[in-house]
């Protein structure tokens, strides 16, 4: 194995990213509340979006969503966002792309099996979940596999489009944030 692949410490940039991920998880409760309000606004003005045409707005939506989610959650823009289920920890940062909870390989100190310099995405997700709800943990919802056609698209756009489409043509993505 080439030396440059392993045996390197975390670079400054990744330390900042990991701090940011921890921050969004610690603040999961109010971030969820804020998002709830934001979603309501989006849904309210949805008829306007529909009038303009979703196709025309697509690039704008992708750009805005990316700026907000990447800066707050280090989102990987899967287009089928489940941040509200994962305590605001983006599951696509898991090297195994697990969307259903921590694997068995998490190190004792809570770091990732594959990248020991990174806190496990799902250890963070559980922390976030404990802050979200008291009665039922949304992390317990079994998530369907990723729809690879949606990668890089806007999850918000899909949510708004679904509102105006019959159920039969809906995609599998749920729980948009």
């Amino acid at each position: 194995m080439p030396e440059y692949v392993h045996n390197h410490g975390p670079c400054e940039q990744s330390v900042t990213i990991h701090r940011m991920r921890s921050w969004s998880v610690r603040n999961a409760r109010w971030l969820e509340v804020v998002y709830g309000g934001f979603e309501l606004v989006l849904r309210t003005i949805n008829p306007v979006f529909r009038l303009i045409g979703y196709k025309r707005l697509d690039k704008l939506f992708v750009a805005v969503e990316k700026i907000i989610k990447v800066s707050l959650f280090d989102s990987q823009s899967c287009g089928q966002c489940i941040l509200s289920v994962t305590g605001m920890s983006c599951p696509m940062n898991c090297p195994k792309k697990i969307r259903n909870g921590p694997c068995g390989g998490v190190h004792v100190d809570g770091t990732c099996e594959v990248d020991p310099h990174m806190p496990c995405v799902w250890v963070l997700a559980w922390e976030g979940n404990k802050r979200l709800r008291v009665d039922e943990y949304p992390i317990q919802i079994v998530q369907p596999p990723v729809d690879h056609r949606l990668l890089g698209t806007s999850a918000w756009m899909h949510m708004l489009q679904r509102e105006t489409q019959p159920i039969s043509s809906q995609t599998t993505a749920n729980n948009e944030v």
Partner: peptide, 16 residues
């Protein structure tokens, strides 16, 4: 894996 962090989530993970 009952022994991997987060330990308090592992029983819930089994339920899932």
């Amino acid at each position: 894996n009952p022994f991997g962090p987060p330990l308090d989530y592992r029983p819930h993970r089994l339920a899932k």
